[in-house]
Nucleic acid binder design. Structure first.
Lengths: 215, 215
DNA sequence: GTTAACAATCTTGTAGACAAAATTGTTGAG
DNA sequence: CTCAACAATTTTGTCTACAAGATTGTTAAC
């Protein structure tokens, strides 16, 4: 067990990762003393970290009743995706305006890797590359405010990220949608980039909605 | 001085308000012991509150160097406004889809009051009503996720909110833009509502950019 | 007059302790 | 057997104290 000496920041990142990767499951109670033992820090530190995570939307705290991992329902996941659509469209637009050649090269590289993943049927790696591409676009946009919003939104909905990819035929269409976004950015066409990103995420939305029906 | 007994939540709200209303100025250092005296709570409480405010973007904390009120530059104010445009367009769209008659009635009431304010030249009240209207639209949209994002974005940029209104002729055009948004919502026309809101906030963006030139 | 080293002060980071509240478990009456 | 009241335990909320780091002010050398 990791009983290292940690400062607040690393402690925050650890706990955050545990929530994101599912080590700590939704609705699971986060008992301060327990985390104290697991992370090797005092309760005061745990407390501030939990407060930060609450503000970030990963944790829910109720007065005198402690903290728990926030459970994100299907409805909320959809809301988050809708909000992401708005933000990522903005980012795509700005990426088209401000992307450097190096940015575009990286995006194309990622796209190529994604293509390979689909050929080999490696959907897990595909999903990882997918988030990497979205991150690359966000960076190319050089828009800190929007990027920060996207970061928090993304962390809240990771639980649902893998599911949409599993829909039949979804990976292939996903790839062509991504290509369209990248090409619009490469062509420095803001309107096209925004539109392509919106179309792509609408597709994901639709896939998630359909999954919900089938459940 | 308010040396009441406060719990964490009220303490958080107080400090937040002090930052938003300018009692605590940008870049001002927030010394824990001092806040302890002002708010009548222990340092641990102050500490968690500062952590929350940092996550919200109102405060900056550096390790071993304490916290200070975050200074939002003109560039950042513009970024925030751009992000707001994306989120509020989404909210306008959903408001058009989900607004109840009562929601629309409230919006029209607010619009009427705004019109009166402009006639009397009361720009301060106009600004207050302005935020009230935007809040009403957000509520009518019934989209918690987007509303939450907007809330945090708004609190970060209040400092720049009054300035755009002061541009010559801006209040009048602002009012007609708002009318267009409300009417589109009342007509349950999502596309028109989104477009009208986007047009409105682009106008504000433009006004802010022009102000920046004149400075 | 300027700069460097050192000391004093201030501020933050963290741990430990205690009281208040909530939860859980137990007992006894119906 | 079920339910309510009560006691024990757990957990949170807060404060105080101390150590570590940063800042400021002073002195002395050049």
């Amino acid at each position: 067990m990791g009983t290292q000496l940690l400062n607040e920041q690393t402690c925050y990142e650890r706990l955050r990762n545990w929530i994101i990767d599912g080590t700590l499951q939704p609705n699971e109670r986060l008992i301060e003393l327990e985390l104290t033992a697991r992370l090797g820090v005092g309760r005061a530190t745990i407390r501030t970290v939990l407060a930060r995570l609450e503000q970030e939307g990963l944790v829910v705290r109720e007065p005198n009743r402690g903290a728990r991992v926030r459970f994100v329902s299907h409805e909320e996941a959809l809301e988050i995706l809708e909000a992401r659509t708005a933000i990522e469209s903005l980012l795509a637009r700005f990426a088209a305006m401000r992307a450097q050649p190096a940015d575009v090269a990286q995006m194309r590289d990622l796209l190529e890797q994604m293509r390979a993943c689909i050929e080999h049927g490696d959907l897990v790696s595909y999903s990882t590359l997918n988030t990497a591409l979205h991150r690359a676009i966000a960076e190319a946009a050089r828009h800190r405010t929007a990027a920060r919003l996207l970061e928090t939104l993304g962390s809240q909905s990771v639980r649902y990220q893998y599911r949409t990819i599993l829909a039949p035929g979804r990976p292939a269409t996903s790839l062509t949608e991504h290509s369209a976004v990248v090409e619009a950015i490469a062509a420095h066409d803001p309107d096209a980039a925004e539109q392509a990103m919106r179309a792509h995420l609408s597709g994901v939305c639709e896939a998630l909605r359909r999954l919900r029906q089938g459940l």
